[in-house]
Design a protein around this nucleic acid. Structure first.
Length: 107
DNA sequence: GATATGACGTCAT
DNA sequence: CATGACGCCATAT
């Protein structure tokens, strides 16, 4: 009898669901998404998924503490897209206190 | 299997 | 607050 943890496909699917669940004007971090998807420590895999799965709100995913991790022009575009959604910044980082999405927060 | 590579996170300087 | 070392997970060589 062997217990079977989630397969990669299932974890990836859950991560995708979490990313799609981010409403405009909110953001989440790579690590937080991985945890929300029940796959703690897989921040780097979240990145891979953002790159592979088309149509995801990639601009709503930032680094821990609200840091924009995309380099160069891509990072600039991300900030622009976020600002267009009403996201505010504190210096170079997203004001997480106001825009970080809380998964599974009821009421 | 060893090593290198990433849009990462945390902790120590 | 900026940097660097190290850990993390999967993939590519």
């Amino acid at each position: 009898m062997s217990i079977r943890r989630s397969t990669l496909e299932e974890k990836r699917a859950r991560v995708v669901r979490c990313i799609r669940a981010l409403p405009a004007g909110t953001v989440s971090s790579y690590g937080a998404l991985a945890r929300a998807a029940g796959w703690p420590g897989a921040a780097r895999q979240v990145v891979r998924i953002l790159q592979q799965v088309p149509g995801l709100p990639w601009h709503r995913v930032v680094g821990s503490g609200g840091a924009i991790k995309l380099p160069g022009e891509n990072g600039a575009e991300q900030r622009l897209r976020l600002r267009l959604e009403g996201v505010t910044f504190r210096g170079m980082r997203v004001d997480m206190k106001r825009h970080e999405f809380r998964f599974g927060s009821r009421s």
